[in-house]
Design a binder for these strands. Structure first.
Lengths: 98, 98
DNA sequence: ACTCCATTTAGCATGATTGCTAATTAGCCT
DNA sequence: AGGCTAATTAGCAATCATGCTAAATGGAGT
């Protein structure tokens, strides 16, 4: 859903997580150490991002590897561009199949 | 501030307002009738958008004309694209001078 | 000044979000 | 099984967001 995506993007920590993930997949714990919030807090941010399908999680034995889901991020960017009147051939804010 | 922008975009009604405004400036009251929220609620959404500098308001005698501030919306879209690794020569999430 | 219209601000109730600590689950290893 | 590490879920307090109704403001016209 478009809305969960924008809501997920509304928190600076979550945008920062995506910025880190942009450079490559990362383990959850690895991310946690980069921010000075508590681990559970990081875990929740990741859950929100996952819920919005902005990231995917993959178990690697003991730990969990997160990576960006670029296509969803792309859709969000496209929606914003649509709001600009820049024509991309699509109705702005239209729900895309998921 | 980048953050206010994304927070403003987090509400569907506000994105919808921008979608309407994309097609041209509109009077506040005109917008209010398009949505079935109360007028004060619409007014608040507009205030949030204005606070984020996503729209500008201009008095026209009795009424108030709103229009999109495309450059801010553009910056937001660019920030998202930056998160994608699409290189646009800028650091993602960097604060732009305002 | 008074009235009317357009819009905003105040104030309040409700619900969502954030972020913490403590407790739990999941997998690996001996 | 027991113990270790990694990560999540539960539960709670505090803050923020939403949306309403009622009251206030701003401008125009009489």
């Amino acid at each position: 859903m478009q809305n969960t995506v924008f809501k997920a993007l509304a928190h600076p920590a979550r945008r920062q997580i995506l910025a880190l993930l942009r450079k490559g997949p990362r383990l959850a714990g690895d991310l946690a150490t980069e921010f000075d919030t508590s681990w559970p807090t990081m875990s929740r941010h990741l859950a929100v991002l996952k819920e919005a399908d902005l990231v995917t999680a993959e178990r690697q034995g003991n730990q969990i590897l997160y990576r960006v889901n670029t296509s969803v991020l792309e859709d969000a960017a496209t929606a914003l561009l649509g709001l600009l009147g820049r024509d991309n051939g699509d109705d702005p804010l239209k729900e895309a199949a998921e």
